[in-house]
Amino acid sequence: MKELLAGSVEDSGSTHIVAVDARVAREASKSPTLGFSADFVTAGPVGADVIRPGDTLSLTIWENVDDGLLTNQGLNATGLSELQVDDEGFIFVPYAGRIRATGNTPDALRLAITDKLKDQTPDPQVLVARAAGDGATVSVLGNTGAQGVFPIERPTRTLSAMLARAGGVAVDPETAQITVTRHGRTGSVWLKDLYSNPRMDIALRGGDVILVEKDTRTFTALGATGAQTRIDFDTPNLTALEAIARVGGLNTNLADPKGVFILRDEPAPVAAAVLRKPGLQGSQRMAYVLDLTQPDGIFNARDFVIRDGDTIYVTEAPYVQWQKTLSVLTGTASSANAISSVAGGG
């Protein structure tokens, strides 16, 4: 512990040593939470029948004459399939010309086509059907049951519905993170928050990219703990007490419960609040110290939230260090005695 304390700012070092109390635990646990911005949240569901560039339409036109403009001899109906809406939002219909389709529902487009044809053929009847195309699809990537491009249809106009359409998530729901990219803007949410907070179940837009991935955050445990290794997070919020438990707790034969350190580079706003030093610039090296022998030490450890990249270091108890020193001295004396015995025997 002395070596760590020697590197403190007070001793001309570069690390701020901070004893954790209730206030420090509260301030140091503030971190950006996942969620979608207002632009995502306030966007209402799109009309599933609104036509967009890239959509594919099919038309059926009935004419009330035996020899119509579009129909073959002996037929009174003709079908025009796979009419793709161009980038400018138009389609071409024989004898009706270029007609704007974008922004219309199939029924509104039907009326527009009928109006164009009625002066050329008596009482035309038009049916418009829309199949979702490039303009009304989203891409689903990552750890899902099925990756691919899926159309936005009436049952799949929201994020949760589209995830279900893609076969659900293929990772532990506790650590699944959902990211949506739209027109260069990105928002992320934990899967469990998506289902617990209806506001996070955002309406989708054509061109959205949905990425499902496992939580990649880790922390490192060193010193007198049950394990010295790098550990993956298994929950969106992990406290110091839970992190210590994850690595097998403190080594009862070695650990000093007064010397549990959490080491991190703290952003300037958080460091300023913890240290009560407004105006700090740049990230600050922080060593938070938990004393688990104090009455509220366990509570503070329970309230202190671990962040990605943290290092938990548990120091050795003073008597352990003394035992090591004594062992070295005893070992040296034993070796000297052994050499003397050999020399005397020779």
Rank of each mutant, 00 (worst) to 15 (best):
L329W: 04
A108M: 12
T158M: 06
G344S: 15
R98E: 14
V128R: 06
A338R: 08
S29I: 10
E213K: 15
T175S: 11
D115T: 13
V85P: 04
D107M: 08
R217K: 06
L326G: 04
I306M: 11
V138A: 06
V305T: 13
E3D: 15
L83K: 02
A245P: 13
A227G: 04
A22M: 11
V18Q: 06
G184P: 02
T42C: 00
A132F: 01
A131P: 01
G133T: 02
L250N: 10
R217Y: 05
E242F: 10
D21K: 03
R130E: 11
S341M: 13
R199N: 12
Q228K: 10
Q323R: 08
G279K: 02
R285C: 02
A108P: 10
R285S: 14
D86Y: 09
L275A: 04
A108C: 07
V140T: 04
T114E: 09
L70N: 09
I178W: 00
V65I: 13
D232S: 15
G142K: 04
D119M: 09
L329F: 11
D49N: 04
L211Q: 08
Q120A: 08
L34E: 05
T137G: 10
F233R: 09
A221P: 06
A164P: 01
V140S: 00
F90P: 02
A77W: 06
A224G: 01
A146D: 09
T181V: 08
A19G: 10
D119G: 09
G47T: 09
F150W: 11
R307D: 03
S335A: 15
G331W: 07
Q120N: 13
P257K: 05
L292K: 06
